[in-house]
Design a protein around this nucleic acid. Structure first.
Lengths: 340, 340
DNA sequence: CTGAAAGCGCTAACAG
DNA sequence: CTGTTAGCGCTTTCAG
């Protein structure tokens, strides 16, 4: 079985290839690593020897020696939220072609877990993309000492590249639309305003009511501490369970989980949409056009949000001293049947 | 500004902490790294110095020295597919508590991209989880030389730990249900059978028809090469656009993208579900209970699939020589309104 | 329990 | 263009 000449079972290293190719360690390293100058002849010899031995570069060693890992970390609230799934895809689409690998972590919208994720990721990546759970939270205090871009949400007092959408304006537009349709009692179903984007949507909602000369009734603001469809359902049930005469005739849901909850609650209560309850959602998502009636929504460019964040990170990686850039993406109200 | 005593701006290393704590390099390394024996006194000194200087372990260096990265790679078809999003979450849920970081890559169901992803990940991880794009593809030829577990799909001739669901049985049950409801012309909307799970579902469909003594008509099998809802819609349109007399009265969709396509096509053609068309889906997904009528589905334990895969990898990491284990998870048919 | 020293596999000066 | 030689920051023998 044994010819008595095999190497150890583990992967061949640059030194092994160099020996086999009959060149110096440095030459082999250069040819294999694709840097510096190597003559065509030497390169050919090294490549042949490399292929023969089945050489494969050790990225960990390369990272330690070069100081760059060629990977980036992404911390999202919950990868099961289609919003973040799409964002991740956008990020991957711009970073992978540049040779970066994506490291993913879920924060579960919890600043403590977010902090742990940042800590676990910081030394293994060249840069970090974070959708901060709370605007006062971990992302600010955890300075990873690496390029960082904030995604979808900003953090008070943190001077970092940031991509968001026009949350307040989008929310305002949604509510204006409801006002135009004749609604006077307009509620909102939202998660606790931990994230800046949610906070801004709430602000946009209130601003639009005020601008229309309408009352702002705390009883119309259903807040769930849980960032889940069932949490949203419970909150919506409380809001919509009010006696008909005091009940809101329209509701604005601040994100796709909230919309899901509203939809469940309306069905449970037997409220006819849009006749008994008009609905406008923030964030478009597949099923909004699959249900009947289809749901009116503030569409945000989710994939582009991820892409742009990726681009910002790429730029900062290339140019660490560049001026902080804050990109704000527009939204669009797409009117469908649920708003009457 | 300068007291003339600061260190370089970069992160402090074990050596810096050792010096500050007045102990040897090795002692500091042990205390900081949490291994070996260190006296309480020395540990306290090191910890104080570490906190003072803001020491943070460099995981890349640790990985190179120890040979273990404490991270694992996950290659999925498309993180935007809710199925994979949930799987990822399941994997993360079991691996993160063990201190592993998750590296994510999308293969876009393309063996070539899958191969590239495996290659990019292999040296940076302790183990790999892969949902192989094709049963003949990359996962087999790319031997990463690291523990590997197959997720949701198996690969012919690859002796590796594997978690799947009972695809054929689930599909058979779905079709039997349709037969019980009196259907005789039952179609299928599916992606090309690149993956083992899809292939098995198609097999289950055919098997059930045969067992019921029904015809197996190739014209009833709508196949899309694209693994997307729009691809599925196009295929479904062709299937359902047939003249009424020859048209199928029921359709089985092999996964959630296919179901989405069927739903779109049925609406476009104005087919009333379930009266003019009964629908059964493989894989339950949120919106199936949000639409009207609600969709009957073969429910698979998606989160558990991810968790179990994570557990298998953990086991193999701990015990590399263990016997290959193949886990098969059960499914359950949940009857709702779409099947009549 | 502590210390010294040898690497992990590669990149990056620096000479030639 | 090629070769030599330090490290990168940590884990891990091996002695004491």
């Amino acid at each position: 079985m044994s010819t008595g000449r095999e190497r150890a079972a583990s992967s061949p290293t640059v030194a092994d290839v160099a020996k086999a190719a009959g060149v110096s360690f440095a030459t082999a390293a250069r040819a294999l690593g694709g840097y510096g100058h190597v003559s065509a002849k030497a390169r050919a010899a090294v490549e042949a020897a490399g292929a023969e031995l089945g050489y494969r570069r050790n990225d960990v060693a390369r990272a330690l020696a070069s100081g760059s890992t060629r990977s980036v970390g992404l911390v999202v609230g919950d990868i099961e939220n289609p919003f973040f799934a799409t964002v991740s895809r956008g990020v991957a689409d711009v970073l992978e072609p540049e040779g970066y690998t994506l490291l993913l972590a879920n924060s579960d919208e919890d600043p403590a877990r977010e902090a742990r994720a940042i800590e676990a990721l910081r030394t293994q990546v060249d840069g970090l993309l974070i959708a901060p759970a709370a605007s006062a939270g971990a992302a600010r205090t955890q300075d990873p000492g690496k390029p960082l871009v904030l995604l979808d949400r900003s953090v008070n007092g943190l001077e970092a590249d940031c991509v968001t959408v026009e949350n307040a304006a989008g929310a305002t537009r949604a509510v204006e639309h409801l006002v135009e349709r004749g609604h006077r009692r307009i509620g909102i179903v939202t998660s606790g305003a931990g994230s800046s984007s949610t906070a801004q949507r709430i602000r946009g909602y209130r601003g639009a009511l005020k601008a229309a000369g309408l009352e702002i009734d705390p009883a119309w603001e259903a807040v769930t501490p849980e960032f889940t469809p069932t949490g949203a359902r419970d909150a919506a049930l409380r809001l919509l369970g009010a006696p008909k005469r005091r009940r809101v005739t329209a509701v604005f849901a601040t994100d796709n989980f909230m919309t899901h909850g509203v939809w469940l609650a309306a069905r449970e209560l037997g409220l006819k949409v849009p006749d008994e309850l008009a609905v406008v959602a923030f964030d478009d998502i597949d099923w909004l056009t699959l249900v009947d009636p289809q749901v009116t929504a503030v569409v945000q460019p989710v994939m582009e949000l991820g892409r742009e964040a990726g681009r910002l990170l790429l730029r900062r990686l290339a140019e660490p001293g560049a001026k902080v850039r804050r990109v704000r993406l527009g939204t669009e109200l797409v009117v469908r049947a649920s708003s009457g």
